[in-house]
Design a protein around this nucleic acid. Structure first.
Ligand SMILES: [Zn+2]
Ligand SMILES: [Zn+2]
Ligand SMILES: [Zn+2]
Ligand SMILES: [Zn+2]
Lengths: 149, 149
DNA sequence: CTCTTGTTGAAAGTAGTTTTCACTTTCAGA
DNA sequence: TCTGAAAGTGAAAACTACTTTCAACAAGAG
């Protein structure tokens, strides 16, 4: 899901950091999953590419990715659910409530809401965070198939 | 910030639960703060009303409030930041990036965005989570005062 | 080659939260 | 008013997620 390895490598180099075997494994595992992952899940996924990888390194890599701005966090209304690679600079996420697959979309017309919120609360709005939940195409299909079998 | 003690008491009673001195202290502390609080901060605030309160009880009370649906969590793009009482059933939050004060607003026209997201991603949207960040009236005033002293 | 700096995994440490447990409070029913 | 059942409590132990420490290792510059 669009995690540009070239770009990440360049950003790393610009900070005097290296793109090691371990970091590459983490990056590839992160790029390869359709759902968001917890650090532990990411560790397990990345170990299939680089078995000698340690959990500590996963956390350290995530920290670096965060600084570079290549990491997006997926939340639910209650807790933080997992990690995703960033693709577009400004994008929001949709999470499938059935299977957890995450998609990004770029549509963003929050101006109207921001204006209304400013009116209601008196706050001067500077930033927003929007996440939708729903059913992905597969899960929606499966569900209507079950309903009419 | 509109946490209806009567209503909470009724919901508790409906489940055979009791509104004890400790729970009341937690509820009042939660209702009294302008910002969102961490469990530990809430514990400290509630102890001023009920010094023999234990941290365990705070966590247990939060769990109960969650079940009742009287608790809202405030997030940033990165981590979960704190807890708030729910006022309106469907409301979104604005957090002041300078002082942390939280306000709720009810304006919500996410239909347009939802439709666009459905088009872009193929997901069938069922729920949304929107949080704005900005400056509260006080902080905005203070900031422009500083700019022209 | 070798100096310097970044990188690593294991293990120890920390923080936040949950569980356990013995004890107390509340309240409905005798 | 007693009394037994069920809810509630705090301290301490346990657990989980994450961070720090540290000694060894890898890579690029000179
Ligand atoms: Zn799905
Ligand atoms: Zn947007
Ligand atoms: Zn403010
Ligand atoms: Zn809404």
């Amino acid at each position: 899901m669009a995690l540009d390895l070239q770009h990440v490598a360049a950003e790393l180099a610009a900070r005097g950091l290296r793109l090691t075997r371990q970091r590459r494994a983490v990056l590839e595992a992160l790029a390869d999953t359709p759902s968001s992952l917890s650090p532990l899940q990411l560790y397990e996924a990345a170990r299939e590419r680089c078995p000698e990888l340690g959990l500590t390194t996963v956390y350290r890599t995530l920290e670096v990715l965060d600084e570079i701005g290549a990491l997006r966090r997926v939340h639910g209304p209650d807790h933080c659910e997992g990690l995703m690679p960033v693709s577009a600079a400004h994008a929001h996420t949709v999470v499938c409530s059935a299977c957890g697959r995450v998609a990004e979309f770029t549509a963003c017309d929050v101006r109207r809401i921001s204006a209304a919120a400013a009116r209601e609360t008196g706050y001067r709005i500077t930033d927003h965070f929007l996440q939708l939940t729903g059913l992905c195409d597969r899960c929606a299909a499966r569900r209507s198939a079950k309903r009419r079998p």
